[in-house]
């Protein structure tokens, strides 16, 4: 995982979900359930925001297979793998 991708994912998270920019987010911070407690609306906003930021496509299947909504780190890894696929 590159630091720059992680930082950009955090920026999209803050922008798309309205979370405080100064909330500490680590790789293992959960996105849903506990942690950031993103609801279904925020999750859709996050995905559309990530697609725009990284020029990638994310399907529901991708999220399910990669268990991508488990944490900030897992969604970042999915973004990285999608960017690799494009190259």
């Amino acid at each position: 995982m590159t630091d720059s991708t992680f930082d950009r994912v955090i920026q999209v998270l803050v922008r798309a979900t309205g979370l405080s920019a100064d909330v500490a987010m680590a790789e293992d911070t959960p996105l849903v359930g506990g942690g950031l407690a993103l609801d279904s609306v925020a999750v859709v906003e996050l995905l559309v925001g990530l697609e725009k930021e990284f020029q990638i496509e994310l399907s529901a299947d991708d999220l399910l297979k990669a268990d991508a909504l488990r944490s900030v780190g897992t969604i970042t890894r999915l973004v990285n793998s999608k960017r690799q696929e494009k190259k």
């Binding site: 979900t17 309205g18 979370l19 405080s20 849903v32 359930g33 506990g34 407690a37 993103l38 609801d39 279904s40 609306v41 925020a42």
Partner: peptide, 12 residues
């Protein structure tokens, strides 16, 4: 988040 549905949790 333990007591309210996630969409009700204050974002800020």
């Amino acid at each position: 988040a333990r007591n309210l549905a996630d969409f009700k949790v204050p974002r800020q």
